[in-house]
Nucleic acid binder design. Structure first.
Length: 429
RNA sequence: GCGGGUGUAGCUCAAUGGCAGAGCGCUACACUGUGGAUGUAGUUGUUGUGGGUUCGAGCCCCAUCACCCGCCCCA
């Protein structure tokens, strides 16, 4: 029982007990595998940055409302990074001439945002970022979408459970123009579209007209556009994108959806978001798109890119709800060496050294105890092989090896223990 | 920042304003050289915190903190 003065965790942070840590590492590893399958390099940036870095490019809300900012001991303001893209821009600009483009980079690390914690959102989270820079084509966009699909597949989410919805900013801008919506109102109209799924149809109509940026007839036209799932056929970019997705073998995962807008300002072409189709979490699993002028504010040459980000929270909830979490095995070793009693303690310890020298990872029970207790510990830790050196084995220079999986045991010469164990481990397939 | 909900044993949850409980877990034993099954016994609390009402508060009132759900924003 913890004392009454237990110090609480910081709001919106999570503690990672071994079980949660295993999930975090699992997501990290699956992200790494998907990225590496496409030839992306791993990189990272500082977790601490100056607020100035974000002031230029990130949205006002992100900087002013949602960043953790504090003064260091010298009085300078420091920000816990709320996103990675500005750091990416700076690092690329600094070495633009000597980097080998196209650049394919990925990263998995912690980020902080000061917002209200709720389902799918915490203040401290881990995010997978992956970008291709220096290429501006629908085929490049398709590659990033294919990476996202590869990841979804690898964690057990088939197209029947998760879909990547795609749209194109330029296509929508053209549609807005055709409806006579003023360019300066595009952003607000996009906001309307973003909000539509969360409101009742009539309420949304009223809300849209209330804003005064759209007429009744424009609203009708907009609804036509948003309901037209064949609209992509009139976009040369999207036609090429879908052909490329087919060639990359991930077509099943992707659907055109004119309702996908994405709030971030810097997207200029293809945009996409992946959702769990059961809808228990109404947030995107991942989201991204194409952006231009990444380096405009940090003094680099013009550079176009495409990328996406995935937080660990939403995907973690979805995998857990669907029973897709990998089985948690508490112990990293498959072997427990028991300590029979005080007199045989070091005898067992020397066995652990012999096994490790033979490349078998082993856990030793740390002190003598009843064998029942030690076996129970092995069971709880998911350890499948237990060795015993009691007085009989010690006298005969032997070791008993028990396989808890099938409850069989054999007693072998000490020199044969490693081989016996290796054989059991291999036979598990 | 705004709105709603919930806080009781390690966990999941009960308890008309009247003795704070169950299941799971944990420990021991049955089985003094063997886990996962079973049985028996044992173990667990400042009912989030601080005030108030009352003869009496887990329950009612106020405040506060934490968490959850939604809005905003977004991974």
């Amino acid at each position: 029982m913890a004392s009454k003065s237990t110090i609480q965790t910081v709001k919106g942070t999570r503690e990672f007990y071994p079980e949660e840590m295993a999930l975090r590492n699992y997501l990290n590893q699956k992200a790494a595998s998907a990225a590496q399958a496409f030839g992306y390099q791993e990189w990272d940036a500082p977790f601490l940055e100056t607020i100035d870095l974000y002031a230029a490019k990130s949205g006002e809300e992100l900087v002013k409302e949602q960043s953790f900012v504090f003064n260091d001991r010298g009085g300078d303001p420091i920000t816990l990074r709320p996103e990675l893209t500005p750091s990416l821009a700076r690092m690329i600009a600094a070495r633009q001439p000597q980097l080998a483009f196209p650049l394919r980079w990925w990263s998995f690390g912690p980020f902080w945002r000061y917002e209200r914690p709720q389902k799918g959102r915490s203040r401290e989270f881990f995010q997978w970022n992956i970008d291709m820079l220096g290429v501006n084509s629908p085929e490049a966009d398709a590659e990033l979408i294919a990476i996202a699909a590869t990841f979804l597949q690898s964690v057990g989410l088939p197209p029947s459970m998760a879909t990547i919805f795609v749209n194109n900013r330029r296509l929508m801008d053209a549609q807005f123009d055709a409806l006579g919506i003023l360019p300066e109102n595009r952003l607000e109209v996009s906001g309307l579209v973003d909000r539509r799924p969360k409101m009742a149809p009539e309420a949304w109509d009223a809300y849209a007209l209330e804003k005064g940026i759209i007429s009744q007839s424009q609203l009708e036209g907009l609804k036509q556009v948003l309901g037209n799932y064949d609209l992509w056929q009139s976009s040369a970019e999207l036609v090429r994108l879908f052909k490329a997705l087919e060639a990359l073998g991930v077509k099943e995962y992707v659907k055109f959806d004119p309702n996908i807008m994405r709030g971030l300002l810097y997207y200029t072409g293809t945009v996409f978001e992946a959702f769990d189709l059961s809808g228990s979490v109404r947030r995107a699993i991942l989201g991204g798109g194409r952006y231009d002028n990444l380096l405009a504010d940090v003094g680099g040459e013009p550079l176009s890119g495409v990328g996406f980000a995935m937080g660990d929270v939403v995907i973690g909830i979805i995998l857990q709800e669907k029973g897709l979490l990998p089985a948690f095995v508490p112990s990293p070793t498959a072997v427990l060496v028991t300590i029979f009693d005080e007199s045989l303690w070091l005898n067992s310890f020397s066995l652990t050294a012999e096994l490790r020298a033979a490349d078998v990872n082993v856990t030793a029970y740390p002190e003598p105890a009843k064998l029942a207790k030690q076996f129970k510990f092995a069971d709880r830790m998911g350890i499948s092989i237990v060795t015993v050196i009691g007085p009989d084995e010690a006298a005969a220079g032997q070791v008993t090896v028990k396989n808890l999986k099938n409850s069989t045991q054999t007693t072998v010469e000490r020199a044969q223990v490693a081989k016996t164990i290796t054989k059991i481990l291999e036979s598990k397939g």
